[in-house]
């Protein structure tokens, strides 16, 4: 049984800037891996741009661009450097892989992750490693769950999710997904509060 929330709903919510940070991050990763979604997303972003164009302009208090540029010259360099995100810690991925490998004897290994903004948004995340052909026991979902396949394949009944595919489950979904012949590595986010605020 498929979820009431569809991939398109998530692409739209992301284009409109409506997703909490952890989900926005997952969608960016999905977009990086999925050319089909990237195309649909580009269109949804353009809609945002065109709607912005059509807004009735609001009067500015400071309408002189030179004043703004003077400010930019004033704190030259410092501003941009501080705005740039810090580089991610090198080796985090290798560490995660090492943990997964150490626990690799089990058919299913789940590694909880703390994502920025997760607790506040009521979102928990984990990396799941399934051995070739391993299945999860049949289970339901307390909320919206998004699973991004990073390596291998995930099979859910007749549906196959390859690298880059996003599996969307919600309260109505009961399933027992199984890894493909090469196993599967996936990142799953479970939202205990309704993130689309529908």
């Amino acid at each position: 049984m498929s979820a009431a929330v569809e991939l398109d709903d998530l692409l739209l919510a992301h284009a409109a800037g409506r997703l909490p940070p952890p989900l926005a991050l997952l969608m960016e990763a999905h977009l990086a891996l999925s050319p089909g979604s990237r195309r649909r997303f580009a269109l949804l972003l353009e809609v945002g741009g065109l709607l912005l164009e059509r807004l009735e302009p609001a009067p500015l208090r400071q309408a002189d661009p030179e004043a703004l540029l003077a400010r930019a010259d004033g704190d030259k360099g410092a501003g941009t450097a501080a705005d740039d995100p810090p580089p991610h810690a090198p080796g985090w991925w290798e560490e995660a892989r090492a943990v997964l490998t150490r626990l690799g004897g089990a058919p299913v290994v789940q590694l909880p992750l703390a994502l920025p903004g997760g607790p506040r948004a009521g979102i928990c995340a984990h990396l799941a490693r399934l051995a070739a052909g391993a299945a999860l026991p049949p289970h339901g979902h307390p909320g919206l769950e998004l699973t991004l396949v990073l390596e291998g394949e995930l099979h859910d009944g007749a549906r196959r999710f390859a690298r880059g595919a996003l599996m969307v489950c919600d309260e109505t979904t009961v399933h027992a997904p199984r890894a493909g012949p090469a196993g599967c590595l996936a990142l799953a986010l479970l939202c205990c509060r309704w993130p689309l605020a529908a």
């Binding site: 926005a24 991050l25 960016e28 990763a29 977009l31 990086a32 995100p85 810090p86 580089p87 991610h88 810690a89 985090w92 703390a114 994502l115 920025p116």
Partner: peptide
């Protein structure tokens, strides 16, 4: 912010 920023890489 946490250090992990895959969305930057994704971009």
């Amino acid at each position: 912010r946490a250090e992990f920023r895959p969305e930057e890489e994704a971009r």
